[in-house]
Simulated scan of single mutants.
Amino acid sequence: MGAFDRLVLFSEVRGTVLKHGAPVAGAELIQKVVWSDNENEIAPQRAVTDEKGAFRFQPITRAAWFLRLIPAQPIMLQKIVIRYEGVEYTAWRHSKNSYDADTELDGRPIRLVCELTSQPDYDGKHYGICRAEVD
């Protein structure tokens, strides 16, 4: 990455929400990120699942300015929650320590399957009901 390329605070996310293995239409997902190098709150992104239970979040990025030139360890606290039928589910919690894209899953894109009947647990480095799809 170049010195002034955009900083990726949360890579693109695609996924599917299921309940008892069936697609869930109309579930609301809220994606949030707290960034250690920014005092201002970053507005959450929202998505709603389609009839196949699919959702997508664009990457959350910021201008690099001089941050890539200053030696520091970035920390982005990432969270996705799912709201469906009056219940809120912890879908994804993760600490990202790199400004590069797709570092959450060690270079793989974030493709999630979120089963509402699952209990939140760790899946590799992230916590929640969503599991990363394996290619």
Rank of each mutant, 00 (worst) to 15 (best):
M1D: 15
M1F: 13
G2A: 09
A3Y: 06
A3M: 09
A3W: 05
F4K: 14
F4A: 12
D5A: 12
D5H: 08
D5P: 00
D5M: 09
V8R: 04
L9E: 03
F10Q: 12
F10R: 12
F10N: 08
S11W: 00
R14H: 00
R14N: 01
G15T: 05
G15I: 10
V17A: 02
L18M: 12
L18N: 09
L18V: 08
K19T: 06
K19V: 02
G21L: 14
G21E: 11
G21W: 07
G21V: 12
A22D: 13
A22S: 15
P23L: 08
P23A: 09
V24D: 02
V24I: 10
A25S: 05
A27M: 05
E28D: 15
E28T: 15
E28A: 15
L29S: 08
I30A: 12
I30M: 14
Q31N: 13
V33C: 00
V34R: 12
W35V: 10
S36R: 10
S36T: 10
N38S: 14
N38E: 15
N38Q: 14
E39A: 12
E39D: 10
E41P: 01
I42C: 07
I42N: 07
A43K: 08
T49W: 02
E51G: 03
K52D: 12
K52R: 14
G53I: 09
F55G: 03
R56A: 11
R56W: 03
F57C: 03
Q58A: 13
Q58F: 02
P59R: 02
I60R: 02
R62Y: 01
R62E: 04
A63N: 04
F66N: 13
F66W: 08
L67M: 15
L67P: 01
R68Y: 06
R68M: 07
L69F: 11
I70G: 01
P71N: 09
A72W: 09
A72N: 12
P74R: 05
P74T: 06
P74A: 10
I75K: 15
Q78R: 02
Q78L: 11
V81L: 14
I82N: 10
I82R: 13
R83G: 07
G86F: 00
V87N: 07
T90C: 14
T90M: 14
A91T: 13
A91S: 15
A91W: 13
R93L: 15
H94S: 06
H94G: 04
H94R: 06
K96H: 11
S98M: 09
Y99C: 11
D100V: 03
A101F: 03
T103C: 02
T103V: 03
L105F: 02
P109Q: 04
I110Q: 02
L112Y: 03
L112D: 07
V113N: 13
V113A: 14
C114V: 12
L116Y: 06
S118H: 15
S118T: 06
P120A: 09
P120H: 05
D121S: 15
D123A: 05
D123N: 07
D123G: 07
K125L: 12
H126L: 03
Y127K: 07
Y127I: 07
R131H: 10
R131T: 06
R131S: 08
A132C: 05
A132K: 06
A132M: 07
A132H: 10
E133G: 01
V134A: 09
V134P: 00
V134S: 14
D135P: 11
D135H: 05
